[in-house]
Design a protein around this nucleic acid. Sequence first.
DNA 1: TGTGAAAACTGAACTAG
DNA 2: CTAGTTCAGTTTTCACA
Lengths: 152, 152
Amino acid sequence: MTLDDIDRRILRVLQKQGRISNADLSDKVGLSPSACHRRVQRLEDEGILRDYVALLDARKIGLPTTVFVEIRLQGQADDILDSFEAEVKRVPEVLECHLMTGTADYLLKVVVDSTEDFARIHRQHLSRLPGVQQMQTSFALRTVFKTTALPV
Amino acid sequence: MTLDDIDRRILRVLQKQGRISNADLSDKVGLSPSACHRRVQRLEDEGILRDYVALLDARKIGLPTTVFVEIRLQGQADDILDSFEAEVKRVPEVLECHLMTGTADYLLKVVVDSTEDFARIHRQHLSRLPGVQQMQTSFALRTVFKTTALPV
DNA sequence: TGTGAAAACTGAACTAG
DNA sequence: CTAGTTCAGTTTTCACA
């Protein structure tokens, strides 16, 4: 599917204000409410608009610390990767898990309350992940910025 | 502020379905619509519910590739950090920028179309960032999972 | 918690380019 | 024929009792 300029404007607005009313959105992008609504529906049907979510203030719910964990596995056989991934999925503090280029390396993004809390999660979950050869941890001192909005 | 069990349920639902109607939400958490509405408003007022956003399918808008870039700066003087951060903010493909523990290290998360596209962004933007001593790039081969939902 | 007026949503019928 | 508009019935929101 091909996006025109108005589509991109709609996406830019919704990536910042996911709960804006269709009336206000149509104003912002210069369409009538129903024309705008039809476009939004098309973007949803195509799966380009994938989800609407609420974002929480991590600090205010006691998870101010972001940790990145690099993990080298013992091999790259599919069953090693599969069982590792299955276990990682069960740790709710792990928000992202990427398989990186190179030799069976994973990068995890983890949110925790504090370094002590991370120690606990490490002890209870990460240190028990199967097939791990090496693990290296880096703490974010400060998140300069973070957005979910893709450039469209 | 202290969150009770129903608050947490509300937050869990809204982190997955940010546009659910108040009527449906109140059903799911077992409250009357107006009681539920009051709680949501309180969570918004407190800033715990920070934002509602739409999430896009990165693949479908031509940004299927995630790249992590580790950067070591030449020093950790405030003005070096400040000018670096100011410049990084201007690159829309950079979704996250974290200052990491250690010696003036940054970690950037970047989304691009392809390795060639990353090469362009590197050439045009990243290689021109001020104060950079060293830069190391890792590509995500495959994103196993990724969520914006914090564990509450 | 329940109520009701005001706002928003959303589909149908219609129109212009 | 595609993309926009107006209009009207329905649903949702949200302030107040």
